[in-house]
Design a protein around this nucleic acid. Structure first.
Lengths: 208, 208
DNA sequence: ACCACAAGTGGACTATAGTCCAGATCTTTC
DNA sequence: GAAAGATCTGGACTATAGTCCACTTGTGGT
């Protein structure tokens, strides 16, 4: 990946969604981006994310390899672009949706709701998210989405001894790699309860 | 990696250290293993773990590439072998050392001591551990060491609502990838305090 | 319509992890 | 100490991510 801030990166600045991308995208570029996303979605669904190579995606989309890498940076960028819509929907629900996920509920309830909603999102697209988080070292922590989740959790954790740290710790338990490893051992139910408890236990008065 | 349980895997079964490896190792094999470990340690120290390729290690050790892979499985296996001694020292201190890390102190104190000691170990060898955890997908959760840490934390967390989950959550915050990302933002001090607090907050009566 | 040029393209190229197996080398047995 | 056979070796080979750049194609200005 050489430049993740160019016009090709598909997600908006955290807490300021829907900014218009300053430099317009050429018509052929838009056509190719759509073709690549479509081909990738189909191949990933058919064979599993890990089993599909970038060459295969390029061939299926009828474009050159270089085109994919120019647009999406690397494999984690492609995975991110595919998740973009779902991710934005969750961000939207957090910013403007009904409580407890959206504004209105008290912070502990919102944090628990966030953890649960994020887990839903994660379990729905586990392999894709995992790819987006692990394709490149440190990828997870560089993408805008992570900053959004972290910022949101930090704000809700105001009052905890170290809100920024606590937010990171909660998100660590929501890493795709971690959830992938723990899920088969404990099952979805215990995972969900555990995450919820973890969210609650970050507050000073917590007693599980 | 084709077989991580063969005679080449360098770590002992959790909670049963120092079992004798059943099939003896041939003399030339032992010589080559030592040469590889020495070369790898030197190259990693000199150029950084990430910047050294397996070919370079093979060349420096004067052996073929196949030899390295047969012995260590993959890059994460090689990193693991280099960490082996440090790791066993920590395990030894946990099993038979003085409290609060070793037996004797009450569980919350032992868990906090474990978290701190593990963080020491991690910060001392961050790049190596990171390589051992991220070179292959899921590598972290497959190695024996993870099971040891998890088992230890689970036992200490008896009484918590879901000890196994809580142990996983604590270890998630101690993942090399996570610590690598959080360290530059928060610094060692806040990291250490955060981990300690996290360990304490896993107990029902916790009030930070 | 045409031009100038920025933006985009695709496939050859590089770097690296990991596989494979014919042959070399140890160890054991007699 | 020689044969038999298990173990180990090394380098050619494959697969894949990601780079590079000469060429093509849109686009906005005139």
């Amino acid at each position: 990946m050489k430049d993740s801030t160019g016009p090709q990166s598909g997600y908006a600045t955290p807490l300021e969604l829907h900014r218009a991308p300053p430099p317009r995208e050429r018509a052929d570029a838009a056509r190719n981006r759509a073709a690549v996303l479509e081909a990738a979605a189909r191949l990933f669904a058919e064979h599993g994310v890990a089993a599909v190579s970038m060459d295969q995606v390029a061939a299926a989309a009828g474009v050159g390899k270089g085109t994919i890498f120019r647009r999406f940076g690397d494999k984690s960028g492609l995975a991110n672009a595919l998740l973009d819509a779902r991710e934005h929907a969750l961000q939207e629900a957090i910013l403007h949706g009904p409580p407890p996920l959206g504004p209105g509920a008290d912070p502990p309830a919102r944090l628990a709701a966030f953890a649960g909603a994020y887990l839903d999102y994660l379990l729905e697209h586990l392999d894709l998210v995992r790819m987006s988080e692990t394709a490149a070292p440190g990828a997870r922590y560089r993408i805008g989405a992570y900053h959004f989740w972290h910022q949101h959790a930090t704000i809700l954790l105001a009052g905890a001894p170290d809100p920024r740290y606590a937010a990171h710790a909660l998100l660590a338990a929501l890493a795709a790699e971690h959830v992938t490893a723990v899920l088969p051992e404990l099952g979805e139910e215990r995972l969900r309860e555990g995450i919820t408890r973890l969210a609650r236990s970050q507050y000073p008065s917590a007693a599980s």
